[in-house]
Design a protein around this nucleic acid. Structure first.
Length: 106
DNA sequence: CGTATGACGAGCC
DNA sequence: AGGCTCGCCATAC
């Protein structure tokens, strides 16, 4: 089954949808908002599997970065960065985001 | 139930 | 700074 709804993964996706444009959140933040501050890997799994399960759900996965404020996407890191910059998120020379400034507070 | 996967996080060297 | 190990979690098979 699609890992279905009602599951933690579904909850994670909802949390991610809560992140407004121009804001970012770390995997750990999303996990915490979903109920488990240590389930960052569950978030990875959820986002890793979600795209195909919610083509219409448009999950703003690009707003989720690692704690260091850098893009860890397995692919499409450029796309992720472009999308974020388009929303107003600035990247440092090291390719990192100022989490203190753009981190979304749930 | 045991093993493997995954875009993490924190710690250690 | 860069790289590796271990811990945590949810899901799939």
């Amino acid at each position: 089954m699609k890992s279905g709804n009602g599951s933690v993964s579904a909850r994670i996706r909802e949390v991610v949808r809560t992140i407004p444009p121009g804001r970012v959140a770390s995997y750990g933040d999303v996990a915490a908002a979903a109920g488990n501050p240590r389930a960052s890997r569950a978030v990875v799994w959820a986002l890793r599997s979600a795209p195909d399960t919610d083509p219409a759900g448009r999950l703003p996965w690009h707003r989720v970065v690692n704690r260091a404020g850098s893009v860890s996407a397995h692919e499409g890191q450029e796309l992720q960065r472009v999308l974020l910059e388009a929303e107003g998120v600035e990247f440092g020379l090291a390719g990192t985001i100022d989490m203190e400034r753009y981190r979304w507070r749930f």
